[in-house]
């Protein structure tokens, strides 16, 4: 049962990912990406990470992709041929990845998986949102804070870029 779900989600994720870059109409690309996000969320649910699944949909599908669509619609790009002369390059990268995946799959039986000590944290908790919160604010507090700092920097940068003229006027006056 779980394997069947995994195969379904994985197949759709692979297919829609290809569509995102292969389809010529940017709106269709966005829709393919939306379907992909949902199936990634489905994959999280099969792994019993419901919180991650919900956040995946809220953040990626609900906010980021809507902004993409917003921009695409604002520019009204019906069709864009500029980015479709890269098939040889894409084929080369894709072939490398496929070979790598095949080698890794075959090698799996030969070597024992190496798990670094101390990276896995077991959390006693009833909900997995609580578990993520515990881990995020104890073990991974520093990376978490660094990530938020980076976001803050990006935000300030964006505001500066958008309000450049205002800053210049102020410094002159």
């Amino acid at each position: 049962m779980e394997l069947a779900f995994f195969i379904y989600f994985a197949a759709v994720i692979a297919a829609t990912s290809v569509m995102v870059v292969a389809v010529r109409n940017p709106i269709y690309s966005a829709i393919a990406l939306l379907i992909m996000f949902f199936h990634v969320a489905g994959l999280y649910v099969t792994l019993h990470a419901e919180f991650l699944a919900a956040v995946q949909v809220i953040v990626y599908a609900g906010a980021i992709l809507v902004l993409y669509l917003f921009v695409v619609m604002l520019l009204n790009l019906r069709q864009d041929d500029r980015y479709h002369r890269q098939w040889p390059m894409a084929a080369a990268v894709g072939a490398t990845l496929v070979i790598e995946a095949v080698i890794l799959t075959v090698m799996k039986g030969w070597t024992t998986p190496v798990v670094a000590a101390g990276t896995e944290t077991t959390v006693e908790g009833t909900s997995n949102a609580g578990a993520i919160g515990d881990v995020l604010y104890s073990t991974y507090l520093f990376p978490f804070e660094v990530a938020s700092l980076i976001l803050l920097v990006a935000m300030i940068g964006a505001i500066l870029l958008a309000k450049k003229d205002i800053v210049e006027v102020n410094s002159e006056g």
């Binding site: 419901e50 919900a54 949909v57 809220i58 599908a61 609900g62 906010a63 809507v66 997995n128 949102a129």
Partner: peptide
């Protein structure tokens, strides 16, 4: 167990 998040996701 993520009821309210589910609603937020659906609403988005």
């Amino acid at each position: 167990n993520i009821g309210i998040l589910y609603i937020l996701a659906i609403a988005s």
